[in-house]
């Protein structure tokens, strides 16, 4: 039954949240934290793709906005971390809504290109303005500056912060799953089938498309804010438009229909380059590996690695029925 698989995943997730931060050492804690934040953005892109069939190539750019807002607020006011994070999420949600406007008229490749243009625009701004580090002024960038980044009270240490980020990721997954099970999820399924089908069912297509992009933007913004909290300083190179494209490709490789597809995507995105680095191999080799993986996914595994894992798990657990709905994506 599906509940068996879900329980197994829930236990596995919980174990990971408890164990990983306790045992991962030094540099790896940071890598896992940033992996978790990118998984949030990947979850947003993945749900837009599987639920509405829309391609967003601006997720990492929106993470940058979330990070920028979080840093900006941190250095300007004395709000708790959570407030800064929420504002960051609200801002990227609003930007997501804006990006949805062209989505109302365009689809497929054209829409993907529009989102890529947004990403490129953000890229330019980040490169020109950099990220606030505590200096004076609106942009708040100083050359010798590095003011303190306040972390959540609950999560001062790196290990606690990793755990904290993982909890946010779970909240993100739950948010997506709740949407899928309720009116928006049904409306999105119809929109994906065809706009005519949606309109004939009384769906306000404009509203629900805007909503979907908003949710996806929210997840990216929260991810970016959490990344800012982890690192304290952000670099424009992290949020290049090409990174957004890469993350989307890995979402396909990971498998967008399943929630753990987003985790796989983020692990590939963050951990593989780190591993290659450790082994003394040029991290750019990861591009080649990812390219091959993407081809593999497109040609033979439409549900990505997550789909293959889901198949394997089902084969191992007798009675675990086909999880065709992609129950948690």
């Amino acid at each position: 039954m599906r509940s068996t698989t879900n329980t197994i995943w829930a236990v596995f997730g919980l174990a990971l949240i408890l164990v990983l931060p306790a045992f991962a050492g030094g540099q790896w804690i940071k890598i896992f934290t940033s992996t978790t934040t990118f998984a949030m953005a990947a979850a947003g892109a993945g749900f837009l793709y599987t639920r509405l069939g829309m391609v967003s190539l601006v997720q990492v750019g929106l993470m940058g906005v979330g990070g920028w807002v979080t840093l900006r607020l941190n250095h300007a006011f004395n709000f708790p971390f959570e407030i800064n994070l929420m504002v960051a999420g609200a801002v990227t949600m609003f930007l997501g809504n804006l990006i949805a406007l062209p989505a109302l008229r365009m689809r497929g490749l054209y829409l993907a290109l529009i989102t890529l243009m947004f990403a490129a625009g953000l890229d330019i701004v980040f490169t020109a303005k950099q990220f606030p580090n505590g200096a004076a002024g609106f942009w708040g960038v100083g050359t010798t500056f590095a003011a303190d980044m306040r972390r959540p009270l609950l999560a001062q240490s790196d290990a606690a912060y990793l755990r904290y980020t993982m909890v946010w990721l779970v909240i993100g997954f739950v948010l997506i799953e709740l949407h899928r099970r309720m009116a928006p999820g049904r409306a999105w399924a119809l929109i994906r089938k065809s706009e005519a089908a949606a309109l004939a069912s009384g769906v306000n297509v404009t509203l629900y498309k805007t909503w979907a992009f908003g949710l996806s933007g929210l997840l990216a913004g929260l991810g970016g804010g959490l990344l800012a909290g982890s690192l304290g300083l952000l670099d424009s190179a992290t949020f290049r438009a090409s990174e957004s494209v890469m993350l989307f490709a890995l979402v396909i490789v990971g498998g967008a229909r399943f929630w753990y597809g987003a985790v796989i995507a983020a692990v590939l995105f963050r951990v593989v380059p780190g591993l290659l680095n450790n082994w003394g191999v040029d991290a750019d080799l990861s591009l080649v590996i990812f390219g091959a993986a993407l081809l593999h996914a497109v040609m033979t595994a439409p549900d990505g690695l997550a789909g293959q894992i889901n198949g394997a798990v089902r084969a191992l657990i007798p009675g675990a029925k086909s999880d065709k709905k992609g129950a948690k994506a």
Partner: peptide, 11 residues
């Protein structure tokens, strides 16, 4: 209803 039915497959 539509000539080519429009039932959402994933619902």
């Amino acid at each position: 209803s539509f000539q080519k039915e429009q039932i959402a497959n994933d619902l």
